[in-house]
């Protein structure tokens, strides 16, 4: 059902934990649907110096969180903004169709954390204006 990469990231997830005094924190998902992702960002000079996550969810939710943190660590804010759910899923060598929403959650958790950062620092990040985190990600029909 899951690729080797998913299982590897599920078994040995990267960047689990919290960052004290994080510059941005984002949480998406809900308990009702069975997954919650929370991302912590440390940002210096427009660059993501550190990132940590905590996730309640299935194997692919944990693997997607882990992979997403790896993909944005050390990158600029613009680069992190460009991370798509598809890139997360591809890096995991694919997710089953019914689990694609996990990769969407990972993308959104990063954006939610960046939104938090932008609000705290009163700066504008291109692309965050029209994001709606209330979208129901759980129709399980998100395109691969």
């Amino acid at each position: 059902m899951y690729s080797k990469t998913v299982m590897e990231h599920f078994t040995n997830p990267r960047n689990v934990g919290e960052i004290e005094n994080a510059d941005g924190i984002g949480e998406v998902g809900n308990v009702k649907c069975g997954d919650i992702m929370r991302m912590y960002l440390k940002i210096e000079d427009n660059t993501i110096k550190d990132v940590k996550f905590k996730t309640f969810g299935c194997g692919s939710a944990i693997a997607s969180s882990s992979m997403a943190t790896e993909l944005i660590k050390g990158k600029t804010i613009d680069e992190a903004m460009n991370l798509t759910n598809k890139a997360v899923a591809d890096a995991l060598d694919g997710l089953p169709p019914i689990k694609m929403h996990c990769s969407v959650l990972a993308e959104q958790a990063i954006k939610a954390a960046l939104l938090d950062y932008s609000k705290k620092n009163n700066i504008h990040i291109e692309g965050l204006e029209d994001i709606n985190f209330d979208d129901d990600l759980h129709d399980h029909d998100i395109e691969e």
């Binding site: 078994t11 069975g34 194997g59 939710a61």
Partner: peptide, 25 residues
């Protein structure tokens, strides 16, 4: 409490234990 069933099943499977869960996943 605080954890999800599918993660639990996958983890159990990795140490050679088969069970099942009522989680949505």
């Amino acid at each position: 409490k605080y954890i999800e069933g599918e993660s639990l099943l996958l983890s159990l499977d990795m140490v050679g234990i088969a069970g099942s869960s009522g989680s949505a996943c």
